[in-house]
Design a protein around this nucleic acid. Structure first.
Lengths: 254, 254
DNA sequence: TCCTGTTTGTAAAGTAGCCGACAAAAGCAT
DNA sequence: ATGCTTTTGTCGGCTACTTTACAAACAGGA
């Protein structure tokens, strides 16, 4: 098993600081430091200075969870935005008829939660942990709004970020309308490869934390169809597939 | 042919002003006045004061067009945001295979264009005028960004606005995934009624500027299916339908 | 190790909605 | 009116998918 990333970060910073300037560094300030790094490496917050982030202290929660765990985050008393620091989760929504659909796969470094800045109580969403373990930090929507009001650059950046999400969704939408399941599967695999794949020339290796059922839901088809398509692709040599990893021998011919 | 709306508006204001206070009002300042009102009645800009809007002068273009006209706006040299002042248009996108899909129906008071603040040259979109005539004004994306940087409140408001669009799209998406064509048609009609319908108790009247083909594209089905469904609904008394208007006798039973 | 729940594989039957084809109706310009 | 274009109505065949159903393979805990 691995240590919590927060801990390792802390340790690292701790060591460094001890060597150079042990005196006035309290544990509290190290905690602040940590928050800084957590936010710091999200591109959204790059526009802010070190001092600014430190000052703001908007992170109010850390959380760690293991595979299979379910994290409820919608209709919470106080709306929050979450930042996934490690691992991957899926956002699942339960509609009135009781069937669950995958809204999104959130990976390391991604934000999720009330991204539209308006909490709507109607939707019933929760997150399910896909990887061995995840760590998540969160801040209050209201704090974030204040922060944006004081930093128009951040607001602009955030708007573009939401815009990007929107563009992706639009793309999925038009795929769903005009392309068949096979094409959608290929598009999804390419996407996934681009985001997380390890490239060796044309060969791409993906750590596979999705079941075929997950994949099916993402590309909006039935589990059986997804299974058949995947096996067909394995058959024709486009793919190597098992529960642990997916290898695409040559992504250019996918 | 009709005159440019800007011109006619100008003329109108011009006349009025001449009667009351001819002295210090220059033509320039009247033009400013006009811009003010155009922006003013979009809720997004309510956070700005009269003086602020006047100062900003971000509107750079007016345009008027008639039914059936096509307005190209994507991949223009300088990215803009447009504000539809009157009428309705559809945003159509042409994909690589040459089939056109309706991206959006834009009604009076709505914004369209590079809403995500990032121009992407990939998509090939244009607008087609649906109503007898429309008037449109536009401003430069860069001006708008500057404006937001100076008015964080506006930036926040805009983000929420984009978020709302996103929410709508998400909703459509999940309808498309889990509901059949009939349900989608009903959902669309309800939506439309809410946005533009004239209510008399449970009876709603809609000015119909869409062809059945348009409707079909909006709910993502074939024209034939849409036609059949509509006729079925007329048959069963849920609807009165003709090319000019749609009447829903009782929206509660739709 | 076995046992149990989850995930994957496969087949057959059923179906919503697409597509092509054609005709009638409506709108529009001359 | 007269033609010409767009829109609407209707039919049947077709197909990509869903659903149901069951079995094999796997994974993880006791």
């Amino acid at each position: 098993m691995f240590f919590e990333i927060a801990l390792s970060y802390l340790l690292c910073i701790f060591k460094l600081l001890f060597k150079t300037q042990t005196k006035q560094i309290s544990l509290f300030s190290m905690y602040e430091e940590l928050k800084y790094w957590y936010l710091r490496d999200h591109k959204l917050f790059r526009v802010l200075s070190f001092a600014q982030i430190k000052q703001l202290c908007i992170i109010v929660g850390f959380k760690k969870a293991n595979k299979g765990e379910i994290i409820y985050f919608s209709n919470s008393e106080t709306p929050r935005i979450f930042l996934l620091k490690r691992g991957a989760i899926k956002i699942v929504s339960l509609d009135e008829d009781g069937n669950e659909t995958i809204k999104d796969i959130v990976q390391k470094g991604d934000l999720f939660g009330e991204l539209t800045l308006e909490s709507d109580s109607v939707v019933n969403e929760y997150a399910k942990v896909l990887t061995d373990e995840v760590s998540i930090c969160s801040f209050l929507l209201s704090d974030f709004e204040d922060l944006m009001l004081r930093n128009p650059n951040l607001a602009l950046g955030y708007t573009k970020f939401v815009g990007l999400k929107m563009k992706r969704l639009k793309n999925n939408y038009s795929n769903l309308v005009s392309k068949d399941a096979r094409t959608r599967l290929i598009a999804f695999l390419k996407d996934w490869a681009e985001k997380e794949g390890v490239f060796e020339n044309q060969k791409v290796t993906l750590g596979n934390y999705l079941t075929q059922n997950d994949i099916a839901q993402i590309i909006c088809t039935s589990r059986q169809t997804a299974t058949t398509l995947l096996n067909e692709m394995v058959e024709s040599g486009l793919l190597e597939y098992n529960r642990k990893e997916i290898i695409i021998p040559d992504i250019s011919v996918l």
